[in-house]
Simulated assay, not measured.
Amino acid sequence: MERIQWPVQDLQEGCEWTTDLMDNFAIYFGHVLCNSFYPVLQRAIGVGSAFEGWSPREQDVVYRVLVAMNPPRGHSFQLELDTAGQRRGRNFRVRVQLECTCSREQQGENMLCFLHQPQEVLRSNQDASLLHTLCTGSYLDVQKTARWFYQLVRAIWPALPQSHNWHLVLLPSRRSCQFQVSNGAASFRIEVLFGVRQGDSDIFVSSQPREACTPSTTWPESYAVAEMKFFKCIARQAPPDSLHLKCLQFFSCLQLGSGFSTYTIKTIVMHLLSIIPVSRWRRRDFVRRLVDISEGLRFCVQVRCLNHFIVGNRSLPGEIRVPPEVQMAETCNLFHHLVMDPVAHSQAMSEYVD
């Protein structure tokens, strides 16, 4: 323990700064978009490793947030499951449908009905519907949404109090909005993802891709908010000297450059935290817990099975809201590719031994 050089970056400070910045953005988003037919943007939710309290890369910390979107006036969102399916999770498309607002017209609201007013009247008296701005066909387009959000950030930044002392640099991204803010002494890299909530649950469909070439109208199912809430729940139960996050961080750092993703290590640790009381993750237990993580990874590689922590898990804390179809689903094997490809399995075994 004494010889481990732990990261010195204050993740909590970065999370708080990012949250304050996104809250300020949200205020201006509300003012700018209040009478538009663009998505209604909700307050950002911190997700990912930094907001869970750990990071495998001190020099490359990304403060990731999810901005939920609600449909604007006269529109509704319908989530359509991609029937092709994915073994690592489900994919959706967000169908945008127009809703009748004739009653609003009769009540004197300043809005014409997209369904029942003539097109020439709409074109000359009202902004275009969401179908004609951020959609491809009838479906919400991730890349168009990202470009629109970039424009919002660029336009609103000068009005924020942070702009007086911080410098903003927008970074390229096709399915999210990434930017760097710095003031000479500190620097934060922030990634904004977009999502649509499934009912009132903690499960979203989001812009974060699951595969390398994800179509622009495909929104993969995201469990990031549920996973963040799991770590918050564990933190409330943990004693002050708990090292469960340091175990996760340390083992993830050891695996950087190997064939095992940080998400794989995180999944193993989440499973262990659900069966090993958090009181047994203290300083005196540090080596034992690292061995547990190592043995868990070895076993999962050997049997070619690592179950997703959220999908099909009927033992999640009650405060994590999961739709029945996700909670009662068949377990999702994150190592399915090892089942299908014996060569990949052999390589995984050799990489682990190395």
Rank of each mutant, 00 (worst) to 15 (best):
residue 316 L to E: 02
residue 325 E to M: 06
residue 300 C to W: 01
residue 308 H to D: 14
residue 303 V to R: 02
residue 307 N to F: 01
residue 301 V to K: 00
residue 312 G to Y: 08
residue 323 P to Q: 04
residue 328 M to E: 14
residue 298 R to T: 03
residue 323 P to A: 07
residue 338 L to S: 09
residue 300 C to N: 04
residue 349 M to Y: 07
residue 345 H to L: 03
residue 344 A to R: 09
residue 308 H to S: 15
residue 337 H to P: 02
residue 303 V to Y: 01
residue 324 P to M: 12
residue 312 G to D: 05
residue 329 A to E: 07
residue 334 L to S: 02
residue 330 E to A: 10
residue 317 P to C: 06
residue 300 C to Y: 00
residue 317 P to I: 06
residue 342 P to V: 05
residue 305 C to Q: 06
residue 325 E to S: 05
residue 303 V to S: 02
residue 344 A to P: 03
residue 330 E to D: 13
residue 328 M to D: 14
residue 300 C to V: 00
residue 310 I to E: 02
residue 325 E to A: 11
residue 306 L to D: 00
residue 322 V to K: 03
residue 299 F to V: 15
residue 302 Q to M: 15
residue 335 F to M: 07
residue 317 P to H: 05
residue 332 C to A: 11
residue 333 N to D: 11
residue 339 V to A: 08
residue 301 V to A: 03
residue 321 R to D: 09
residue 336 H to G: 10
residue 318 G to D: 14
residue 340 M to H: 12
residue 336 H to Y: 15
residue 319 E to W: 11
residue 345 H to Y: 11
residue 340 M to S: 15
residue 316 L to S: 01
residue 310 I to T: 01
residue 339 V to M: 15
residue 333 N to I: 08
residue 347 Q to Y: 12
residue 324 P to G: 09
residue 339 V to P: 02
residue 301 V to D: 00
residue 327 Q to R: 15
residue 340 M to G: 12
residue 323 P to T: 12
residue 308 H to M: 10
residue 323 P to M: 13
residue 317 P to G: 07
residue 306 L to Y: 01
residue 305 C to F: 04
residue 322 V to F: 07
residue 306 L to N: 02
residue 323 P to G: 10
residue 341 D to H: 06
residue 349 M to D: 10
residue 348 A to F: 01
residue 339 V to Y: 06
residue 307 N to C: 06
residue 320 I to C: 02
residue 316 L to C: 03
residue 303 V to N: 01
residue 318 G to T: 08
residue 338 L to R: 03
residue 303 V to A: 00
residue 307 N to Y: 12
residue 307 N to W: 11
residue 305 C to K: 07
residue 331 T to N: 09
residue 309 F to G: 02
residue 312 G to E: 04
residue 320 I to T: 07
residue 317 P to V: 11
residue 318 G to W: 03
residue 343 V to T: 12
residue 311 V to H: 07
residue 343 V to G: 05
residue 298 R to D: 07
residue 345 H to T: 05
residue 298 R to Q: 12
residue 341 D to E: 09
residue 299 F to Q: 15
residue 314 R to W: 04
residue 346 S to R: 14
residue 305 C to M: 05
residue 331 T to S: 13
residue 299 F to H: 14
residue 332 C to R: 10
residue 315 S to W: 10
residue 337 H to A: 14
residue 332 C to H: 06
residue 332 C to G: 08
residue 309 F to T: 01
residue 319 E to C: 13
residue 335 F to S: 03
residue 342 P to Q: 09
residue 319 E to G: 14
residue 297 L to F: 03
residue 340 M to C: 13
residue 347 Q to D: 14
residue 307 N to I: 07
residue 337 H to L: 12
residue 340 M to V: 13
residue 338 L to F: 10
residue 325 E to K: 03
residue 339 V to L: 14
residue 316 L to H: 00
residue 304 R to P: 01
residue 317 P to L: 11
residue 334 L to N: 04
residue 298 R to N: 06
residue 309 F to K: 03
residue 333 N to W: 01
residue 320 I to G: 04
residue 333 N to H: 04
residue 321 R to A: 09
residue 317 P to S: 05
residue 332 C to I: 10
residue 342 P to H: 08
residue 346 S to K: 09
residue 324 P to E: 15
residue 314 R to H: 08
residue 297 L to Q: 00
residue 326 V to T: 01
residue 346 S to Q: 15
residue 328 M to G: 08
residue 316 L to A: 04
residue 310 I to L: 03
residue 303 V to Q: 06
residue 331 T to K: 14
residue 314 R to S: 09
residue 347 Q to W: 13
residue 324 P to H: 08
residue 320 I to H: 05
residue 311 V to N: 00
residue 309 F to D: 06
residue 345 H to V: 06
residue 345 H to F: 11
residue 325 E to F: 15
